[in-house]
């Protein structure tokens, strides 16, 4: 029985995409940030009409630190049955980008890049120049930090519990103490009386 449990390769965490086993899931292309825009435009005109997904990966100890990953799909933009659609092709474009580096937006090539780029910005802090509306999408607008970065902790710091609200307008109630007449002593007294009867 061949074992699938192999020890991790040394330094694999730095760049798993480089030691990837030959898996036929998509064509892979790696580009530099400076030529990203030109490559995307070229692919768009080649017929990659759909931006399937746009995500990012944080390789904390690698330089450049992040990979922004574009998944493209080649489909004809006309109504077509299964036989006419033919064989759509997938393409994965990886673009290494450093912490303070910006990337050009591709919102004008694929409209769906709008939310995808906002999400990458929100969760990784990668800025897309030229995006019309780059603000947080999943996290609240006043959130600090970018949660999917590897140096962002899995759990938040322990916080003090907020104080319990007082019962406004009820003079017989003080927050934290039971109302008069329902104290433990009063209850025991009540039980005692009931037993004696």
């Amino acid at each position: 029985m061949p074992s699938t449990q192999k020890p991790p390769l040394a330094g694999a965490a730095l760049d798993p995409t480089a030691v990837r086993p030959p898996i036929d899931d998509a064509a892979v292309q790696r580009v530099a940030p400076s030529e990203l825009r030109a490559v995307l435009e070229e692919r768009r005109h080649e017929g990659y009409t759909m931006l399937l997904d746009l995500g990012a990966v944080d390789y904390l100890r690698r330089a450049p630190r992040f990979d922004v990953v574009y998944h493209l799909l080649k489909v004809q933009p006309v109504a077509a049955s299964v036989s006419e659609v033919g064989q759509p092709a997938r393409l994965r474009i990886l673009c290494g980008v450093d912490e303070n580096e910006h990337l050009p937006t591709c919102m004008d090539l694929w409209k769906s890049a709008d939310w995808a780029e906002r999400e990458v910005y929100d969760l990784f802090g990668i800025v897309f120049d030229g995006h019309a509306d780059l603000r947080r999408i999943q996290m609240p607008v006043d959130w600090e930090g970018h949660p999917l970065r590897k140096d962002y902790p899995m759990r938040g710091p322990a916080r003090e519990r907020s104080p319990r609200p007082a019962f406004a307008g009820k003079s017989n109630v003080v927050a934290g103490t039971p109302p008069v007449g329902r104290t433990l002593e009063a209850l025991q007294e009540e039980v005692k009386r009931a037993r004696e009867q």
Binding site: Q5, P8, L9, A12, A13, P16, R20, D53, V69, R92
Partner: peptide, 28 residues
């Protein structure tokens, strides 16, 4: 179990459309 390092994109046709996972393993 440990998974060999690499990255894979795989999609299935979910009820709402192409549901895909892009998963990176670093051998851990």
């Amino acid at each position: 179990f440990r998974v060999p390092p690499g990255d894979v994109y795989q999609a299935v046709e979910g009820p709402r459309g192409e549901l895909g996972y892009y998963i990176v393993s670093d051998g851990e």
